[in-house]
């Protein structure tokens, strides 16, 4: 791909739009999550700041910006400040290949999913740096958990996606969407229900959300890898957590739920509706289930998801080979 001026300008605009999307997503999702948690727990959630508490999340982010950045003694300065930045910036890149609409893609690369999966690995690196550099034992335990969890859950995630890739015969996200129809019975979720299930479980594990929020398990490790972060450092971790959630939801919508295709009219809103339904699912299970134990988390992955994913992949491969 030659990096012409037009492509460069396109990427620049896309990155700016993605930053806007990330921030807006975090603000909206914080509000939605707190409201949903409140309603599930039969209390109103944010209520006082703004009408129905709508600007609560904005005020919270202002507070985080204004807070003192507290640096504990004996931290590794370089890694301590690199970690939140490293958590935030790769996510920008991850949104580029996502087809939001029929023609709306930040950077239509032919093998977009490889880009996403490759750069998703930076997230765990930032968690490791944060836990290690902050000179805190809770942080270190959280970092150790984050690494082994992310490494483990990326494999079934890839296996689930590979089944779809085998079926479609393409690594391009746009082509995967185009291979699906406009109506729910034409989506990949019906062709590959097992892959969808595996992806859904490993999505929660990959984004470190409850019930798989072991790296920041509140009742065990206080806050895990970001125990020592305050102010903007914490805000960046927070932002990247929600951005990661949004990313895996978009990928899920693209691969299994027909992406921008939908009944009546194809369009960008279908992508967002589907992605946010999955986001709501993540929020919903967070406020329902207790946390799993760490060995159980790895057992679920290595003993169930991985064999299931492999079997699913083999069957898909055989069928694809036999029925061309």
């Amino acid at each position: 791909m030659d990096l012409s001026l037009v492509t460069f300008a396109q990427i620049l605009v896309a990155v700016l739009a993605i930053i806007g999307l990330m921030v807006a997503n975090a603000v909206v999702m914080v509000y939605v999550e707190r409201k949903a948690a409140g309603f599930i727990q039969r209390r109103p959630g944010p209520y006082e700041v703004g009408p129905w508490g709508t600007i609560q999340a904005i005020c919270d982010s202002m507070k985080l910006l204004a807070k003192q950045i507290f640096v504990p003694a004996n931290v590794d300065w370089v890694l301590f400040f690199l970690a939140p930045v490293l958590a935030f910036f790769p996510v920008l890149l991850l949104f580029l290949p996502i087809p939001f609409g029929p023609y709306l893609t930040g950077l239509a690369v032919p093998d977009g999913i490889v880009l996403i999966l490759a750069f998703a690995g930076f997230g765990v690196l930032s968690n490791l740096f944060a836990g290690w550099a902050s000179n805190n034992k809770y942080g270190l335990l959280g970092a150790a958990r984050a690494v082994s969890q992310s490494v483990a859950y990326e494999i079934p995630l890839i296996l689930a996606l590979l089944a779809i890739i085998f079926q479609t015969g393409s690594l391009s996200l746009t082509e995967i969407v185009e291979a699906q129809g406009s109506y729910p019975w034409q989506w990949n979720i019906l062709v590959q229900p097992l892959a969808f299930f595996i992806y859904l479980v490993s999505l929660v594990g990959e984004t470190n959300r409850a019930p798989f929020d072991l790296p920041e398990a509140e009742s065990e490790l206080t806050a895990g890898f970001h125990t020592e972060y305050s102010g903007m450092g914490f805000a960046l971790f927070f932002l990247s957590e929600y951005a990661n959630m949004l990313l895996v939801s978009f990928v899920c919508a693209t691969f299994f739920l027909g992406g921008y295709k939908g009944p009546f009219l194809d369009g960008i809103w279908w992508t967002f509706i589907k992605a946010y339904l999955i986001m709501f699912f993540i929020v919903w299970i967070r406020w329902t289930f207790p946390r799993v134990r760490f060995d159980q988390l790895l057992n679920i992955n290595w003993k169930w998801l991985l064999p299931l994913g492999l079997i699913n992949l083999w069957i898909t491969a055989i069928i694809v080979k036999l029925l061309p």
């Binding site: 948690a37 727990q41 039969r42 509140e218 009742s219 289930f289 207790p290 946390r291």
Partner: peptide, 16 residues
């Protein structure tokens, strides 16, 4: 106890 295990919601039902 359920909160110790990571489930945050039940304690509010108990408080009802």
């Amino acid at each position: 106890f359920v909160m110790d295990l990571g489930g945050v919601t039940p304690i509010l039902y108990a408080f009802e």
